[in-house]
Design a protein around this nucleic acid. Structure first.
Lengths: 163, 163
DNA sequence: TTCAAATATGTTACATTATAACGTATGTTG
DNA sequence: CAACATACGTTATAATGTAACATATTTGAA
């Protein structure tokens, strides 16, 4: 239940997510679907406790572990990313909108956090990744996971009124 | 007071830090010096509350804001870095041991976190930084601060017994 | 030097983020 | 259906970080 409470575009992406999960033998349950929906509709990074508030619209007594478990699942499936500097979560741009090779698997990405408007842009830049791999290989370090986050001002905020 | 409680090498680095601060017209007070000393002697990232415990050896009733304020100062002076993924702090390798141009100013750096031994290595790799700047410039994003952290296994842990 | 301003620290209280531990339900498989 | 694995509910608490205001210390200028 808790079925079709999201915008049509979101439902489309949720359906894509459901197929990705099915393809690995995992299940996008109603609860996980709802948490993912809340993240996708946010258009900005969302904190776990904001999601909890959202959940409580349906499930009155929901508690933190409910949200954190769903988030852990979604992270493992590569459907969302955590922005460490913000302790907040965003939908994965690549997993749900195109047919990317790495869809449905946690992957290296880079995030640009605009301090003007709060929006976060996901990059998937090979140059950055290669530079990181190259530098670490030189000293014999094997990277398992990387976090790359840049804070600054996006083009819109630079061009517009805000200084 | 709380004067010379650290190892000689640490005191040397603390004295270097004091000179860097003086050069900008800021003061490495006893309290800040002690917090920096605790970070430098840790050899691993240290959490704020671990530092608080350390402080309490001298100042019995110390409270969180005391530590966080000292950490903020040290971050601004570029004497320490925060590892976001660990919510923990490390001494800046570059600021205190050589005479680097960027010493005593917050600067872009990259951190390699070994999940085997817990050690963190600071890089200052131009290739990574350039790749980031290049990728962001293309989309008109102006970077003010960047966080680059890689988790994995260091050379020692890869070579030795641990798989 | 002595007062005023700025800087630094002390202190209390609380906000935010995250997890441990254990019980219950639901689904899956033989 | 029984046994197992997976997912979810619930309570309690841990870990990290800050707001707000009081006090002390340093600095600088009259």
């Amino acid at each position: 239940m808790a079925g079709t409470i999201f915008a049509e575009k979101t439902e489309t992406r949720l359906n894509a997510a459901e197929r990705l999960c099915a393809a690995h033998g995992s299940r996008l349950t109603d609860l996980r679907r709802q948490v993912l929906g809340l993240v996708l509709e946010a258009a900005r990074p969302v904190g776990a406790y904001d999601l909890l508030d959202g959940l409580r619209a349906d499930k009155k007594g929901a508690a933190p572990p409910t949200v954190y478990r769903a988030l852990d699942f979604l992270l493992e499936e590569g459907l969302i990313h955590k922005i460490e500097r913000l302790s907040a979560f965003v939908g994965c741009t690549h997993a749900l909108d195109g047919s990317h090779a790495e869809a449905g698997h946690p992957h290296a990405a880079q995030f640009l956090i605009c301090t003007g408007c709060g929006q976060v842009t996901e990059l998937d830049d090979h140059g950055i990744l290669h530079a990181l791999i190259h530098a670490t290989r030189q000293i014999g370090f094997m990277v398992r996971h990387s976090t790359v986050e840049a804070e600054g001002l996006c083009a819109a905020c630079l061009g517009g009124a805000a200084l």
